[in-house]
Design a protein around this nucleic acid. Structure first.
Lengths: 154, 154
DNA sequence: TCAAATCCCATGGTATCCCATGAAAACCCA
DNA sequence: TGGGTTTTCATGGGATACCATGGGATTTGA
């Protein structure tokens, strides 16, 4: 298995540290990126995190816009400029920055959610709400994908 | 034989372990996936399980949307974030997570039902009820397929 | 020089590994 | 065909390894 799968909730300790789930660490090790690439997810109070697989997607996304255009600059600013690279300590933990803690509204628990090529960091309660919404939306999307003629045009 | 067929009921032991039926294990071995890919079946109190054959279905669904978009995140959260990869021990057993035990309402017995490219995990009583319903519905579907003019368009 | 970040080690609970057992199925040979 | 033997398989339990977590010690950097 090469991607991030499943979800886990871990404790944020007094020093602001939290363990990355072991299975996610295994993916990151295979991925080869040193550290953890993070940036705020645009539409949700969550953080996108990952390694080279995530970076490749960002690159792919930004390259679809012509350089030196305002849109390219804006997208790059959001995906590159607003990102952080967190160090992973010897025990597989990271220290979450204040920016991340604020954006996610984190207290003392952190939920990690696998999305295959990346994973997300959530405040547990907020994740539960998002998950309910995601499940509903997924049903719609899947229904549409399996029978596009009945949905809105694709 | 390449798919999962028939159904089996095994015991859930004190440690939460249960043996995967030998014939299903043979399919998984041929399939080549390490472990058992599982996620909650959305419309029933059952869990879908399988290997690469099942994973391919999921991959196929998510690949139809562009990554890093809100809809892709939601679909991935529902499909990958809510799934689990269970390890299969040397004796062909898995330990069922609390999420799975709750979703299925499992007590001390587990029924495995082959569905060709995947199989399902059920609480035995619930499965019996579902089977009765499935048999009835199957009859209707077959009747309709043999005489499409009388049914709703397909 | 002090606070924050990093490293290092300890610990407890849980998951995983490994071996044993018994029942049932498959096999074999007369 | 039938009886005896071997294999397969589900199940149980002890031993071990892993992992999340906490806290002290050391380094870094402002």
């Amino acid at each position: 298995m090469t991607g991030f799968v499943s979800h886990f909730t871990n404790r944020l300790d007094a020093k602001g540290r939290v363990s990355i789930p072991a299975s996610f660490r295994a993916v990151l090790t295979r991925d080869g990126f040193e550290g953890l690439y993070c940036f705020n997810s645009s539409n949700t109070p969550a953080v996108d995190a990952g390694g080279n697989m995530l970076l490749a997607e960002i690159k792919n996304m930004t390259e679809q816009l012509a350089r030196l255009t305002p849109d390219h600059d804006m997208l790059a600013a959001a995906l590159y400029g607003d990102s952080e690279i967190l160090k992973i300590d010897g025990d597989g933990r990271i220290v979450l920055s204040e920016m991340i803690r604020n954006h996610c509204g984190l207290e003392d628990q952190v939920t990690f959610v696998g999305l295959d090529y990346k994973f997300q960091i959530w405040e547990p309660e907020k994740y539960l709400a998002y998950r309910a919404e995601a499940q509903k939306r997924a049903q719609e999307i899947l229904a549409q994908l399996s029978n596009p003629s009945q949905g809105r045009p694709v």
